[in-house]
Design a protein around this nucleic acid. Structure first.
Length: 840
RNA sequence: GCGGGAAUGGCGGAAUUGGUAGACGCGCUAGAUUUAGGAUCUAGUAUCUUCGGAUGUGUGGGUUCAAGUCCCAUUUCCCGCACCA
């Protein structure tokens, strides 16, 4: 863009009027393609700044502003620092709200297609985005419900299938009865086990579903080296993956070896019974005829229990004896095999060795069913009772191993999961006697991606009676969603009822066959969308490999903390899987991550229509202007913290922008001086602000950056006078203020910049650097303390020695008074800060 | 139960990482301007005070010349996970 000023309309007003200047610059920016990134420009280092794309919900919420305006400021700042910044935006356009709206309309007898609705909402959101003044590069826009996009979801699915990373299995799954679909484990929230979308408690269903093998990457996903991510997210992902080290131990039984996983193999000598999950495959064979009726009744009753009941019962253990016994491989003991629902089929091997002495759950079970307890660790603390007949709870702690034959006397000194001599000795013994081996287990489950809904990517698989599940040939992609569909809530995908879609021929043998009628989890769409931004119109590949090798990984990603495990874990998995398929060379998608907090209503509660505390950005913009709203949102407080909305606060930022405008535009009628001291003070304040604002923006501390600009403005207001405004130093300050304000309030700063006779945009101007020498003061204000209490302020030459400072301090009347007649024990001088005189 | 985070004026929040607590903004008070209100500008604003000072960063202790910051204990609140063997 060469000459932006020519395009600016003549401007009469000398008053700050956001309603005049904001639309004006929005149009100019758009017409001049100011924000289109040239991906092939190698003259500057690249910087991929990504912010999570929104679901097209129709209206821009103030939460969108809170997420995106500060991200925009940070991206603009990077651009001014000389990077070739890519800051794209798109829409996460598949998903349930649009489909549910279609179902609702169908019930009223109306015909509303999710696609129509989605594209309408995208259009209206894009209009609202303009008001924010964000520098999104819309030429790279990605809309995930476009067949050109989801075609590549299907293509990636097939590559995953070829690589063995996608598979189908029949298994109990979480089902949301309100959304009428299965969910991934990550989408089941909290103790109540509710759907993350609608809050309905999930139920279990047995279904044949597609999975991605994210568990293959469990260990690699625990590695965060080189990533600048919030600790909180790293910890959450680490906990979610839930790696446990221990051992597998084989117990002989009539049905074969029952393998258990334990983190405490050193307690196996204390295993007095075994417990299998009700769904364990050996249960039928191990159940004796006398126990059969009782066991079947128990299993029946356990399977009927919802997850909530199982939670509620967690204090009161239930279970049933199978009638069979297993052999403890370490001592040959015959131990009873029980079934209980506190053992979960989905974790470890679905079977446990029960050590009631050292495990609270096993202890409670043993007490209830009067099973044996053997002490296997003698506590270090002599005061602790370790007599099994006296114990009221399991002993879990440090001590010396007893009653465990070959490992007796070894030390158990650590918490579970850490290096421990007794565990090492036990694993050695198991290894040598071929009774077990060291093993690792994860909490992470494979990612269930099938959804029984219409508005998503069709799974590109065809089922043939002869050939089985056959992937759709790549040259036949995309498998497009049919548009003539009936939206009736049936609990199954509407695609299943669409004959034209359902029936097809087998790509291998050409016999009649049927399509998979499920669609993919929409988290599939968001697991690679930033690749597509680089070449959104590419037809023969998901993305341009050359551009990807240049532009990836993403330097900076921003978005909400609610995706800490879902989207962010899936995206990391995808990147690694795509690497192993040979599609990319990067190991991680996002090098730096920052999360914004949540903006709350004025009543400090989550914004919701029912509470009536929703703040509407449109009306805020028409009242205060977009710059003021942006600035306020950044000024509230630390970005990752969120906080309550306060309309009075926006009025404060309007005042700030208005005062900044007046300081720069209006002449002064005030008399005053432009002497050296005044100019020096102005320069010092200005360059100090540059230093602080730069550091703050580097750290995403928008609130303090704005506070710093306000402080500088206060100095300008104080000093401003007729003589001073004519100096070059004043002009320089105005220029630097405008540059520093540019990322935060892009419209007003562009207007001010153009009025300073600049022909190109402030947004491609260079970020200022500060002059260290301007920060040096002739004299420094220091505090003088006596016994740690401030008693006086002194002004000392900045280069004064410690001795000189002390001399000045002691000469101070109020100081002398405080140590007069007392013995001075110590004198501390911290140059530039304070003096502390310690007296007896 | 396990893991993480937080607690500072009337409010949102600062604090150079051990060095003058309360930057900046909101609100409030007084004054200027205005017919009035709003807007704007100026000054003030942690608490108590006998105007000398004293007290003050959830609570109790400790280290230090010096603690919002470090250590020990403790309370409350928020977030994540949860019968995970």
């Amino acid at each position: 863009m060469s000459d932006i000023k020519e395009q600016a309309t003549a401007f009469e007003s000398s008053k700050y009027n956001p309603h005049e200047i904001e639309p004006k610059w929005q149009t100019i920016w758009q017409d001049s393609k100011l924000y289109e990134t040239d991906l092939y420009d190698d003259s500057k280092p690249k910087y991929y700044f990504l912010t999570m794309y929104p679901y097209p919900s129709g209206d821009l919420h103030v939460g969108h502003w809170y997420a995106e305006a500060p991200a925009d400021a940070a991206a603009r700042y990077k651009r001014m620092q000389g990077y070739n910044v890519l800051f794209p935006m798109g829409f996460d356009a598949f998903g349930l709200p649009a489909e549910n709206a279609a179902v609702k309309a169908a019930k009223r007898g109306e015909n509303v297609h999710p696609a129509t609705l989605t594209y309408q909402q995208i259009e209206s959101m894009k209009k609202q985005f303009v008001q924010m003044g964000a520098m999104f590069d819309w030429s790279k826009e990605v809309v995930t419900c476009d067949p050109e996009y989801y075609k590549w979801n299907q293509w990636l699915f097939i590559q995953f299938l070829k690589k063995g990373l996608a598979y189908k299995k029949y298994s109990p799954v979480d089902w949301c009865p309100s959304c009428n679909t299965t969910l991934a484990r990550e989408q089941v929230i909290g103790e109540e086990r509710v759907c993350d979308r609608c809050g309905t408690p999930v139920i279990k269903k047995d279904l044949n579903q597609w999975y991605f093998k994210i568990t293959d990457y469990a260990d690699e996903l625990l590695e965060f080296e080189g990533l600048d991510w919030p600790d909180k997210v790293r910890i959450m992902q680490t906990n979610w993956i839930g790696r446990s080290e221990g051992a597998e131990i084989d117990f002989k039984s009539a049905a074969g070896d029952i393998t258990v996983f334990t983190t405490r193999p050193d307690t196996v000598w204390g295993a007095t019974f075994m417990v299998l999950a009700p769904e364990h495959p050996y249960v039928a064979e191990l159940t004796t005829s006398e126990q059969k009726a009782d066991v079947e009744a128990y299993i029946e009753q356990a399977s009927r229990k919802t997850e909530i009941d199982r939670q509620a019962d967690s204090k009161d253990k239930t279970g049933i004896f199978t009638g069979s016994y297993a052999t403890n491989p370490v001592n040959g003991a015959q131990i009873p095999i029980w079934i209980a629902d506190y053992v979960l089929m989905g974790y470890g091997t679905g079977a446990i060795m029960a050590v009631p002495y050292g495990d609270q759950r096993d202890f409670e079970f043993a007490k209830k069913f009067e099973l044996d307890i053997i002490a296997v660790i003698k506590p270090e603390d002599e005061a602790i009772v370790y007599d099994p007949t006296e114990m009221t709870e399991a002993y879990i702690g440090a001590g010396t191993v007893i009653n465990s034959g070959p490992i007796d006397g070894t030390v158990c000194n650590e918490e579970k999961g850490k290096a421990n001599p007794s565990i090492a000795a036990a694993i050695d013994w198991l290894d040598n006697n071929k009774a077990g081996r060291s093993a690792v287990t994860y909490r992470l489950r494979d990612w269930l991606i099938s959804r029984q809904r219409y508005w998503g990517t069709p799974i590109p698989v065809i089922y043939c009676d002869d050939c089985g599940a056959v992937p759709v040939p790549e040259d036949q992609l995309p498998v497009e969603l049919p548009t003539d569909i009936e939206f009736m809530p049936t609990g199954e995908s509407p695609l299943k009822l669409h004959e034209g879609f359902l029936n097809t021929t087998c790509p291998t043998c050409a016999k009649p066959a049927t399509r998979d009628t499920d669609t993919m989890d929409t988290f599939m769409d968001s697991s690679w969308y930033w690749f597509r931004y680089l070449s959104p119109d590419m037809e023969d590949a998901p993305f341009d490999k050359e551009l990807a090798s240049k532009w990836l990984p993403v330097e900076q990603y921003t978005g909400g903390i609610e995706h800490a495990i879902l989207h962010l874990l899936y995206s990391r998995f995808f990147t690694k899987a795509m690497r192993d398929i040979g599609l990319t060379t990067v190991n991680e998608p996002f090098m730096k991550l920052r999360n914004q907090g949540m903006i709350l209503g004025e009543d400090n509660e989550k914004m919701s229509k029912s509470r009536g505390n929703v703040v509407n950005p449109d009306s805020l913009v028409s009242e205060y202007g977009g710059d003021a709203v942006r600035t306020y949102l950044m000024f509230i407080g630390p970005w990752d913290q969120g906080g309550p909305w306060n309309t009075k606060g926006v009025e404060g930022t309007v005042r700030f922008l208005n005062r900044t405008w007046n300081a720069i535009i209006e002449d002064s009628d005030k008399d005053g001086s432009d002497d050296e001291a005044t100019i020096k003070e102005l320069r010092r304040a200005t360059h100090y602000a540059v230093k602080e604002v730069t550091e703050d923006l580097d750290n995403f501390q928008f609130n303090t950056a704005i506070a710093e600009l306000m402080t500088l403005l206060n100095v300008m207001t104080k000093l401003k006078n007729k003589a001073l405004v004519k100096t070059v130093e004043w002009q320089e300050t105005c220029k630097l203020v405008t540059l520093m304000l540019a990322p935060i309030a892009p419209h007003i700063s562009e207007e001010l910049w153009s009025r300073m006779d600049n022909s190109s945009s402030v947004h491609i101007a260079e970020w200022p650097s500060y002059d260290e020498s301007a920060l040096v003061q002739d004299t420094i204000n220091m505090a003088v303390q006596v016994n740690g209490k401030v008693r006086a302020q002194i002004e000392v030459p900045s280069e004064a020695s410690k001795e000189e400072i002390l001399e000045i301090a002691k000469a101070e009347e109020n100081i002398a008074k405080h140590f007069d007649g007392k013995e001075i024990k110590r004198e501390i001088v911290v140059p530039g800060k304070l003096v502390n005189i310690v007296v007896a």
